[in-house]
């Protein structure tokens, strides 16, 4: 464990806590894409298959349980909570996210490290996470006024994978093992997808104005 990975995990944890805080306290999911939340639940479900078979550390297991629990409970809140579901804007959240799942699954079937069920699922989760934010970014462009918590959620979610890239660079220079190029590429693509969001997020922060993404 290095400072970049710890910072990345804490940033990721902060993003899910900000979202849970928003949905649980103000009982609203306005501006939040259910599609992205469903994709993330699938990302964690397919990435953490080894949670019962391979024990790495208490930290690793606890964090996996937090990410699995938070992503599935957020999906449940938006779909089934009698108050929260009313604030879900399904007419705006129209990204066809299964069109993201299918290419990621096909790519994982052809481009992977080992052709085993766990490995293909793990690779699928990497590819899927890289594009999982797209429905949320599309929804933000349609939602004129982005509330602070949703903006902070997306910012933290994008920042965590950026920190992981520093973690991979650090490990590349300090450990004998190697970080597989699939992880590198998926992580870089994922972070690049946030590039324009980061730009507008910093602009709004610098000029102290409401965050608005150009349509």
């Amino acid at each position: 464990m290095n400072i970049f990975r710890l910072a990345g995990d804490m940033t990721h944890l902060a993003s899910v806590l900000v979202l849970l805080l928003k949905i649980h306290t103000i009982k609203s999911c306005a501006g939040v894409s259910l599609k992205t939340q469903e994709l993330y639940a699938l990302v964690f479900a397919t990435r953490y298959l080894d949670i019962v078979t391979d024990f790495i550390s208490v930290y690793n297991t606890v964090m996996k349980l937090i990410f699995l629990g938070s992503s599935f409970s957020i999906v449940w809140y938006i779909r089934h909570h009698r108050v929260v579901r009313r604030s879900y804007d399904k007419d705006q959240d129209t990204f066809r996210h299964y069109l993201l799942m299918i290419p990621c699954m096909l790519l994982a079937l052809f481009v992977h490290e080992k052709f085993t069920f766990k490995e293909v699922m793990w690779t699928f989760s990497l590819y899927l996470e890289a594009v999982a934010i797209l429905p949320q970014l599309v929804l933000l462009q349609r939602t004129r006024n982005i509330d602070n918590l949703t903006g902070q959620y997306v910012f933290l979610l994008g920042a965590y994978r950026g920190l992981y890239i520093f973690n991979w660079i650090y490990r590349y220079f300090t450990e004998p093992h190697f970080v597989h190029w699939i992880t590198w590429i998926a992580g870089v693509v994922q972070t690049l997808l946030y590039a324009d969001f980061f730009y507008y997020y910093f602009e709004s922060w610098k000029n102290n104005v409401r965050l608005q993404l150009p349509a």
Binding site: H177, F178, H180
Partner: peptide, 10 residues
């Protein structure tokens, strides 16, 4: 083993 290190990551 020269297994990828990222398997111990989240």
């Amino acid at each position: 083993s020269n297994d990828t290190v990222t398997k111990d990551e989240l």
